[in-house]
Design a protein around this nucleic acid. Sequence first.
DNA 1: ATCCAGTGGC
DNA 2: GCCACAGGAT
Length: 187
Amino acid sequence: MLQQTQVSRVLDFYDRFITRFPDLATLASARESQVVSQWRGLGYYARARNLHALARRVVREEAHVYGGSLPDSPDALRVLPGVGAYTAGAVASFAYEKRAALVDTNVARVLQRVFAPHLHPKRGRDLRHLWAIAEAVLPRTGRAAWTHNQALMELGALVCTAREKRCGRCPVRVMCASTEDLDRGSR
DNA sequence: ATCCAGTGGC
DNA sequence: GCCACAGGAT
């Protein structure tokens, strides 16, 4: 749900959805139309179909491989429908506390501003470079990586936003390549 | 490297 | 109207 959709907009849908489909088995046994129906209003309906297909694959088609639950490595996750590089890293890191990097729009923007002000996060090739930076700054342990990734995303979502940088409230401004001049104005 | 997908903020 | 949003698929 969070793919290309703000957290604030997802919250209500998530609560209803998780109540209706508490686990992968329930989701797999449901009809696609019912899953899409619960998704109505969220947009990007291909995500609903992908999630449903993912549940069916994990629970049924290859139950002997997946054992009814999601794999914990980015490479294994990556092949599932609707799971790209970001989601694979996010599940590995946030759900399993594996030491995995992840770059979403927030992380891309933060890393770009802090370490590579000459790059353009929107551009495909520069994104590849940002993934390399994300790997380079990843803490050693899975637990630390969890906190690190979470903090990076929060920083991008709450402080270092697209339309406003808010350097005055940023904890890493002293080592950031894009810190605004705070001598006056713009807080 | 491009195209694609819905919705809400501003 | 544009832009941004916890990207993915081709």
